[in-house]
Amino acid sequence: MSGIRDILETSVEGVLGRGVTPALLRDAEQGQWPAELWSAVEDAGLTHAAIHEESGGAGATWSEIFALVRSAGRHGPPIPLVETVVGGWLLSVAGLPSVLGPVAIAAAPDIEWESGGFSANLSGVAWGAACEHLVVLAGRVSPRVVLFARSDFTAVGAANIAGEPRDDLRLSDAQPTATGDWPHDPDALLMTGAMVRSAQIAGAIERVLEQATQYANERVQFGRPIGQFQAVQQTLAQLATQALLASAAAEHAFNTADARLSPFAVATAKICTSELAGLAASAAHAVFGAIGITHEHSLHFTTRRLWSWRAEFGGQSFWSERLGRQACAGGSTGLWPAVTHGDFSTTVTA
């Protein structure tokens, strides 16, 4: 489709394909920071994909970044690669210089901050303790991007079921390193977060599809590969359609985001991928049988991420209630114009 998109995808596949091994994932869950992997990702320029070229980034658009994020979902690197990309984008759009090292991101819509000390409790922040910088999108009335260094806050460790850090951060009267006005939707971080998680889910579903298909061709029962049994084929066929749907929903959100983050497309992506995450994980485990639920096997690295990511940045119930209320408010005649226009807020009629 586009040059940058392919370059980013090839590059991220190379780095993560080599670097993210089961052993590394196990060590990371024990709290070990994969410094080498982080350097490799940073050296390849992946963390700065969304940063404007003037600020030293790749200047990629969201549609170009889609494949990078989907690949990150396939491999599940235990580092805040995706969060750092989003953090870099927030800084860049707010006109702030880029930073090096892992970045954590957090939305604080209820904090209308203008200047002085910044106080907040931020919960469930991905790699909050391990990051070197924290980017907060604060406020609704006049939203601002606020940058902190790691020494500006304290962190209490917590983790999702994939063992990825989701820490609780406390800032009391913290002095920001830099701040800038946020010229767009105050919900941008929530939306971007949901959008990237949906692409990660799409990548993870592709991964379990590949793993399960390969296993079905290898595992022999009743004297033949289980992939020859129609029941198993039907399960894998459904998994394949789920992978396509997840990817389509996520990619569409990224494509529309080039012009403007679309609440409709993001909601669509997150609702669909969150549901598909559960279906796909269950189909993959069904195909693998008992071996798939052992700690020894690598399937769970992906399925536990699917079960975690679907609930982040608004899960199914949050986004579907939001979208559903808009659909009901618009009535039957508003529905199709909104679907074709990709937006409920401006109801266009012929």
Binding site: L244, L245, A248, A249, E251, H252, F264, A265, A267, T268, A269, I271, C272, E275, Q316, S317, W319, S320, E321, R322, L323, G324, R325, Q326, A327, C328, L335, A338, V339, G342
Partner: peptide, 20 residues
């Protein structure tokens, strides 16, 4: 909220299937 969620899910599926 239950109705809103189901309808939101329907709309999302419709929009995603259309992209496919």
């Amino acid at each position: 909220s239950g109705q809103a969620r189901e309808i939101g899910r329907l709309v999302a599926k419709l929009a995603a299937l259309r992209q496919m």
